[in-house]
Write a protein that binds this DNA or RNA. Structure first.
Lengths: 326, 326
DNA sequence: GCGGCGCGAGAGAGCGCTCTCTGGGACAGG
DNA sequence: CCTGTCCCAGAGAGCGCTCTCTCGCGCCGC
């Protein structure tokens, strides 16, 4: 029940604490027989290194933070599990902890002080409010940060994103190939890069599309579709900039007597779980969220191990997943 | 850019390190003028306590773990955000970190060693495999643990749950009050307490219900409903033991030409986001997930601060949310 | 007036680990 | 055989903090 320290392991193995430490940390240059003795002592005593003590001298917390928007914005967000899982995949084998922080009053400040006092080695910022000053402060302080998604204003910060424009263009081509005559789009919020890019990418492919605005939420999808069929009843193909909005929009079409995809073809964006809970299941643009999250973790770890490394952002290519809706 | 230590704060304030420490930790018995001087020194130097150093001597990590099933089981699980948010609400103001761990090979062992080496003060276990030996080991080792949901076999462990039986009974009463004549239920997995209790509670209210088994997943809801309408076409009311299954089951009814709720009334369980993405929106039994999560955090913190305290589990009461499906 | 008591501040000993620096042994070259 | 070199183990100094213990001072009681 008593705590075992390195000192004790060393004593049992008949070596010095320094040598025991070398074995624990896999350092080179330890005589094979001594290494063996230490390893035996470790397992016989059930030794576990005290992370706080190590952290005190190495000045590494071996923990990174994941800053998320609060529950309301996150609720029903089907990405959370994938993001966590992707980050976990790269971070776990290294024994690094993933600390979750949901935005609330003072969260970002807390994250900053955790970072500065060495409690966190770096942070991943998800869905950051474009007006948020924190990312800027962090990079100004030279602290390791990675953004999920391109920042609204260009800034020297590492981010990981999917090629939103290309994805939206794929959706446009899909609808055109279905011989739709009257094509529309329900957009995301135009004060976010994702919202802007998806609209721009789509319009590049379908310049004469009818544009109705939404904000990525289900409810906004409902409202937008109601407006759309009111102002443009002959619509027969819609690119909806998030699966969640599509999920809200499709029942509106059904209620109006239109069949999906026979009367109106629908293409979504995200390939989130909402794509499968829609009826019919959504044809959608897939973002490899989990892989992107893993890449964010990798980028962050690189920044941590080699500070003052140049910012390198990576952009993933989306793909079209064809299902039943269009 | 240089790190500020307590030593330095003390020097600036013209007091000893001990006194500065007393001020930082809000200890009593510090002369008002000195306290003031220290506080000024803290803000002028921008001092932040080094958590590792503190943790080394207090033997507290000020971090708790949240052990989750892996992505596959979690995907589309609408609870994750609520759980995290509930725990965060309790834990954040105390400066305690929430460390997320998704189950993978060796996760639980890692959590155990984190706990034993003082890197984590306690853990919350979610969706634990009934056969998992870890919870037992943890309580045997006297380490703070709280379970989400009653354990399958009774064991002396603190858990937080909703009254599943009562919730299922509410669903039964609802269907009866709708004058359904032929009532059925699609169950959850019968090797989990939740699956068992929801079935038992429902049967207590509707003893002659047709029983079809599912496993809480969407796909199992599809399959179960197909079996149900095949074997019992005259069914006009179904209690489906999870919203996710209901979400899969309703389209099956639609495809068979049945209208919900006119031909078949549906009541779900969870009041997760899947309840809103169904069409029509689900009448369902609500579990206050976020509050339950907050309570788990509170129970865990209590166990941490007073070890060897008696196990006290708390059971929340569910409520029926009436929407359009039944 | 002096001893005792209480309260508040300082000194200092760790907490468990890493890592530099030193020392000693083995080997090779002169 | 002696010295220079290299390599590996041990000694020991912290990392920044908390907390006990001690000490000094002011006040009260006798």
């Amino acid at each position: 029940m008593k705590r075992v320290t390195l000192e004790e392991v060393a004593r049992v193995a008949g070596v010095s604490r320094a040598t025991a430490s070398r074995v624990v940390n896999g350092a080179s240059s330890v005589d094979e027989s001594l290494r063996h003795a230490v390893q035996k002592a470790i397992s016989s005593t059930g030794y576990l290194p005290n992370i706080a003590a190590r952290s005190l001298v190495t000045r590494r917390a071996d923990a990174i933070g994941l800053l998320l928007p609060d529950e309301r914005r996150m609720d029903g967000d089907p990405h959370l599990a994938s993001v966590v899982s992707g980050v976990t995949r790269v971070v776990r084998p290294l024994g690094i902890h993933l600390v979750l922080m949901m935005t609330g009053p003072g969260t970002r400040e807390q994250a900053m002080s955790d970072l500065r006092c060495g409690r966190l080695d770096g942070v991943i910022l998800v869905h950051t409010d474009p007006a948020d000053p924190v990312p800027g402060q962090l990079i100004a302080a030279g602290l390791p940060v990675v953004l999920a998604g391109r920042p609204l204003k260009p800034m020297p910060i590492t981010y990981v994103d999917v090629n939103q424009t290309a994805g939206a263009a794929m959706a446009g081509r899909r609808l055109r190939s279905l011989q739709c005559n009257r094509i529309a789009t329900i957009t995301g919020p135009q004060d976010t890069p994702a919202g802007q890019d998806r609209l721009a990418g789509f319009l590049a492919e379908v310049p004469d599309a009818v544009v109705v605005h939404g904000d990525f939420t289900r409810q906004s999808g409902v409202a937008a579709m109601e407006r759309l069929i009111a102002c443009c009843p002959e619509v027969d193909g819609v690119f909806i900039a998030s699966d969640l909005m599509a999920n809200g929009a499709i029942p509106v079409l059904h209620r109006s007597g239109r069949k999906v995809p026979d009367d109106v073809a629908i293409v979504g964006f995200d390939d989130s779980s909402a794509a499968l809970t829609s009826e019919p299941e959504l044809t959608t643009v897939r973002q490899p969220i989990s892989d992107m999250a893993a890449e964010m973790a990798r980028q962050l770890l690189r920044q941590i191990s080699e500070p003052r490394t140049p910012v390198t952002s990576v952009v993933f290519e989306p793909s079209l997943v064809v299902r039943d809706s269009g």
